[in-house]
Design a protein around this nucleic acid. Sequence first.
DNA 1: CTGTTAGCGCATTCAA
DNA 2: TTGAATGCGCTAACAG
Lengths: 349, 349
Amino acid sequence: MKKQVTIYDIAKKAQTSTATVSRVLSKSGYPVKPELRERILKIANELNYIPNMIGRQLKTNTSMTIGVVIPTITNPFYSSVVLGIEDIARERGYQVLLCNSHRSSKIEEEYLKTLLEKQVKGLIISSVSSDKDELSKLMKMGLNIVAIDQSINELNASQIHFDYRKGGILATEFLIEKGHTKIAFISSPLNRISRQYVYEGYKDALMNYGIKPNRAWILISSREEEVSEMNYEFNNGILMTRELLTCSELPTAIFAGNDMTAFGVMNELNAQNIKVPEQISVVGFDNIEFSKMVSPTLTTIQQPDYEMGRIACNTLLDQLDGVNTQNIDIILQPRIIERNSTKENETEG
Amino acid sequence: MKKQVTIYDIAKKAQTSTATVSRVLSKSGYPVKPELRERILKIANELNYIPNMIGRQLKTNTSMTIGVVIPTITNPFYSSVVLGIEDIARERGYQVLLCNSHRSSKIEEEYLKTLLEKQVKGLIISSVSSDKDELSKLMKMGLNIVAIDQSINELNASQIHFDYRKGGILATEFLIEKGHTKIAFISSPLNRISRQYVYEGYKDALMNYGIKPNRAWILISSREEEVSEMNYEFNNGILMTRELLTCSELPTAIFAGNDMTAFGVMNELNAQNIKVPEQISVVGFDNIEFSKMVSPTLTTIQQPDYEMGRIACNTLLDQLDGVNTQNIDIILQPRIIERNSTKENETEG
DNA sequence: CTGTTAGCGCATTCAA
DNA sequence: TTGAATGCGCTAACAG
């Protein structure tokens, strides 16, 4: 590998000093006589000069790199978030170091250490570690942190999260406003906080409208392992629907805790010759890619994941650039995507 | 932000020189008296020392960061690749700068520039730019490049790609070996080279078995825009199947150019009351997540995307670490995932 | 085994 | 408006 061209080489050729070359090439706005400026620029170009950011970074102690720590990029939700982050980072001249923690707090910690060593000044993290002391410590050392998709009360950082409960309310109220009162709820285990919130939203909405929930229509699976190569959430949808259909009185609508489960629900309804949405309306949650590819296409709740990434990144860079130094706490609102799996209830109340 | 602890601080406190501190802390293996070594380690720990990799990097001109340039991370295929890359990078002590080019050669070029400025020594790229001169130039400047999922004959770099044609052969031969001879092919436009190869594989397989392709059973759509919010590939599957079913003689199997299209195919067959796989077998291509969630679950072809990431990264790091300096060209082989959308043909030959 | 010294590429202070 | 000189944090050559 041949030696790099440095400002020293340019200075020599332009018969000036490195200081002046630096002033021109770093776009510092420092006054340099136009003629000299042109000459330097020309020579830099001829020599194919590539600035060495490492030199600059060592001198100025600023890094145009941010770290992003997420569980896994293959989760479509996180890949959208990361895309949003990176789009903003690029626009604002920053770059992104991607770190998949695989939900291991050990890996997460290793990454935090490496990021610090690389002198990263800003971090967007969906942390899996329950020990937030580590993060607090890093913040005291001057690291800017924006937490996403989680509530960390102990952490004095900016946070951007979703309103899962509101999503549950939205889905349920959507059905109620379509005239449904007999609304079932089907979900995988409530061991994730987001599912718990969705369920609470469902109950809240019913309560808001004075509808008493029917115990028999609330089916929460206890399974969370893949069965026979079939997605467990899909499978739960099938099994829970099968159970639901043994009830003496059937609901007119089903709210599934996520889209995969909703697919299972629709699948089983179809198998038992129950028409969606004519006989039963179905609403999902997540708006994954395939929800518009099933038939009927699925009405569902969308969390603005790409937006979350953009907002998180803008928040972080505002802090880094000193535009804003206050901590921000944002709760992103869900919205309902109406498709063909739902319709007005026409049965007698 | 309070001042960083440097090896100078440690040297002072340990009453030794920065050289010795560096020798201990950089794990150089250079001999240092155990007693002194311990003392330095202890003080470093007390002072909460965090090595500044920027300093090291400036001195040694080595960067433990690689760049990854892909079209978009939200494409599940690329997110798997990136996960594979990052898992290996982490194991080997490297970090990943993620760059989404959004299929814009302008953005791609900007990223290449920035990566160079950041002194990245290695790059894994799925390039969209037709101009490979730029990449060649970078290689001459000492950048190590591994190209993925594309054939760049002009580029003298390591390459890892998939055998799409083989995938087409595999799918078709799978059906033939199940006794099918009347095999239709349904695809979106062949404007992507991968689709073209799959189609060629289909024809090759038929030819290998002396089966003459029936023109009426080869349906290649010309549409590539989303229609009414429905995925166009899904929609193409529906439309092409509808057309296929107008033929006087029907095939006993359908090979769809990708999974989404296959879902459309199955959807339309179902709508027209044709049973899969009893009456018609269906094979897809891609093995996307959803293919095991439809019913019947879809038999399909899988490209080892995660593996591609791992191999690409290992190849690159071998070059960077000097383990291997030769260029490597690997074609990853597809495999068939048999599920429930296919069965033995029982109709008369 | 240890210390002195130089310098990686750059930005910035100070003096001119 | 320009240049000389310094030092960011670290490693490595060299001398001891």
